[in-house]
Write a protein that binds this DNA or RNA. Structure first.
Lengths: 201, 201
DNA sequence: ACGCTGAATATATTCTTGATTATTCAGTTT
DNA sequence: AAACTGAATAATCAAGAATATATTCAGCGT
């Protein structure tokens, strides 16, 4: 327990992450070796283990970064000054689709990595879902305050919205339809979520 | 083209299907051989090919049967005399979940087979989705007629409901949550779909 | 001719074994 | 002592042989 990883210089940790990301992007997670990452950083493979518990931990850190980009995008929507809460719900769902689909189609190796990592590290997926849900709750509360929404339990409803958007959240499902079909579905889903099925009195 | 499979006795075809189903159920699709199925029917393996194009076709027929059970269940809900249209939507979603989860947890080998088959035979999945959508359209129209729903385009809305229920439709996703969690989510989703987010005037 | 089979072939699966690679640790360098 | 490395170990992967299985087809019995 003598040399905990915490008090090692963060610059080197970042250098490692950067080198690893480059490799993972280009060749994929499985095909890049610890030795290669180490050489890119002018150090021995053994030294990597002073900064990260193992290869998976490097992947996990990068996966978190990647998922946080999604969260940042969604934040921009939720805290936008121009959009109405209703528009924000639509944009939220479309942005989710856009992130998943782009990730899947344009950086397949990176996506392969994120998927593989999330398979082992359920906690990362959990955290990501929690982050999204927190944003949705904020959005629903805002809608309530503006008198546009009538949501009695924002937490439960946020969970339901995430449930409804499952199709747009999993890279695994992206081969099922064309991008256009997905966008159509996302638009219709958003509209249904906003209006509901019951007749307005 | 001399002896098309169509005009061969259907009894034998059914016998083959029954034998195959028994084997698939017990040992799984991959681990049962054509020779075993043939022996169960007191015929040679070669003879199976007079009734089915190949092993996949046997699996496909059984998978269709299996999915049709789901459809029959849903039909009972849609054409029920007691339930209101709103209740039917809830029941529809819960029944979808129940079918998927039961299939996954209680007959894992059968489920493995259906999943494998559907991977090769996209048309079977397509047909199943179309069947479900047709039922939903009927249900939405009934709701409109009774003045309970206000759905302008039942076809589009049916598609949106299926989209929203994706989480409950894929055996692949069943490991994600406990049965209870799924039921909670299904209930909340149904309620959201019925009511929508917007405030009622 | 019709309905079927056994043997032949093509395809897929499993097993073995030799590398690669992740991970650890004693020891070197500063 | 602190920061690191090279070599040792353990776990994983990959190529190819061996096996098992799906599929075909020439021919047998009726």
């Amino acid at each position: 327990m003598e040399h905990s990883r915490e008090n090692l210089p963060d610059e080197i940790r970042q250098q490692i992450l950067q080198a690893a990301e480059e490799r993972f992007r280009q060749y994929g997670y499985n095909k890049t070796t610890m030795a290669e990452i180490a050489k890119d950083c002018d150090m021995s493979a053994a030294n990597l283990y002073r900064y990260f518990e193992n290869k998976l931990a490097i992947g996990a850190a990068l996966a978190c970064n990647c998922l946080n980009i999604d969260i940042e995008n969604l934040k921009k929507i939720v805290f936008d000054r121009e959009l109405t809460p209703a528009d924000k719900v639509s944009e939220f769902i479309l942005a989710t689709l856009d992130f998943t689909h782009t990730q899947w189609s344009e950086t397949p190796r990176m996506n392969e990595m994120v998927t593989a990592i999330c398979h082992e590290r359920l906690d990362i997926v959990d955290q990501h879902v929690q982050n999204k849900q927190a944003l949705l709750i904020t959005l629903l509360r805002e809608g309530n305050q503006q008198g546009m929404f009538d949501v009695s339990d924002p937490e439960v409803t946020a969970e339901a919205i995430l449930t409804a958007a499952t199709l747009f959240d999993m890279p695994l499902l992206m081969p099922l339809f064309s991008r256009e079909a997905f966008e159509r579905k996302a638009t219709y889903l958003a509209s249904l979520l906003l209006n509901g099925l019951l007749k307005r009195k």
